[in-house]
Write a protein that binds this DNA or RNA. Structure first.
Lengths: 228, 228
DNA sequence: CCAAAAGTGTTCACGGTACACCCATGC
DNA sequence: GCATGGGTGTACCGTGAACACTTTTGG
């Protein structure tokens, strides 16, 4: 393990930013303004600087390239195949993030020519191996959603149980029984029932709820299972 | 994302190799023959070459530094804090591996002055942030063992249900009920019951079993849950 | 009054858990 | 014969899954 003087792989981060609205799950993509894959859609990301942690690099790129900050962010997987970038050897640490679509407009910045949300199940062809990275994030969402009440990161602060259920159905890729879902989710004891209802809907207005983070942390400490 | 000409972080892999025998879980460590942390125990690992995938680098280091090959190996997490190596900026992709202790003698090789198995719950002080990496592997084992019948990678090819149960108890950190354990594990239908028994034991000789990988794959395809 | 989603309980089957005694073997 | 782990079955309980109708609101 002598000092390393040879060519080294470059190191980047790439972020799979997932958002949700009533139409479904979306990913934030950026249209590349440079070769290779000029004009293709790609994940926001970029090189890791020597003086920042990899986590910080992910947050920075998210802010610079997509104009997003203060989002929930977690490391996903490191993609290190040899040919994944045609220019040179690049290893990328992929992250995934969840944001409230209502709160965030993605905006292109720096060297990205365009940024936009894309529906998760009708993605365009992506640059590099980014399709595989998105697939990994999707898989992680599917498994994580069963153990941690992640959904609240994606919904507006006040939401209906119907919205929450539709989100879970999207994430899990299957229909859930309405009564069982409400029963379980309310039994978790991490929702504040508000004295507010939807407005201007063409059907009975649903009650609004809010995620009770304090109760959630308490339950976590008590060793609680959030399986849905 | 122009061509990158500045200083770049170096990229390494580190492997948490877990082994098991009747005395408990062990991790393979190497005594460092170079500064920094000269003489300290550390995980086997090293730099990723430009012409090999990160996975390949992990396998190579495992072979070179610990003399291990053909082991079960999986990516664990990427550690990218800024100060984790005092010499220069180094990001490491951590892997974890499971081996049959009976089959593998670790042997020091290349630039490691010594290699040995250490009991997982009485580790010496480790170099760099390797203690955190081992802790992450341990946590991963604990959660993974519940979903995938991982234990078989760690046991000899023929084993008793008692051995399997003790392994699970080590991994999960709690005692399991013998009858329930046997019932569940046999119900999985992935064990071959052999017409062989232990020999030379000071008690009733236990029947030996073998992991039936074919049946396992079949169950996986059928969407089977291996929760214990 | 019609469409569309909200809201609400009960029953059944299965799996998890708790629990105690006899058996085979080596010393 | 004794110490040590191997081996076996049953009863209870809680949770997950299935399932249908009434209510409210806007158009």
């Amino acid at each position: 393990m002598a000092t390393y003087a040879h060519a080294r792989p470059a190191l980047t981060v790439d972020c799979v930013v997932l958002g949700y609205d009533d139409a479904g799950l979306k990913v934030a993509l950026i249209r590349r303004g440079l070769a290779p894959y000029l004009g293709r859609w790609a994940l926001p990301g970029g090189f890791v600087h020597v003086d920042e942690s990899v986590d910080d690099a992910a947050r920075r790129e998210l802010a610079e390239e997509a104009g997003l900050s203060r989002v929930w962010l977690e490391q996903l997987y490191t993609f290190g195949a040899v040919g994944r970038d045609p220019r040179e050897r690049v290893v990328t640490v992929a992250y995934w993030a969840l944001v409230r679509l209502a709160d965030h407009r993605v905006q292109a910045a720096t060297d990205a020519s365009e940024a936009a949300w894309h529906a998760l199940d009708e993605l365009p062809r992506l640059a590099f191996d980014h399709a595989a990275i998105v697939a990994a994030a999707r898989e992680r969402l599917r498994s994580k959603v069963r153990w941690q009440p992640i959904g609240f990161e994606l919904l507006p602060r006040k939401f209906t149980l119907g919205q929450l259920q539709r989100l879970y159905e999207m994430a899990l890729g299957r229909a859930l029984d309405k009564r069982n879902f409400r029963k379980k989710v309310l039994a978790l004891g991490i929702l504040d029932e508000l004295d507010e209802h939807e407005r201007n809907v063409a059907h009975r207005a649903a009650r609004l709820y809010r995620f009770d983070e304090t109760a959630y942390r308490q339950r976590l400490r008590d060793g609680f299972s959030f399986e849905l």
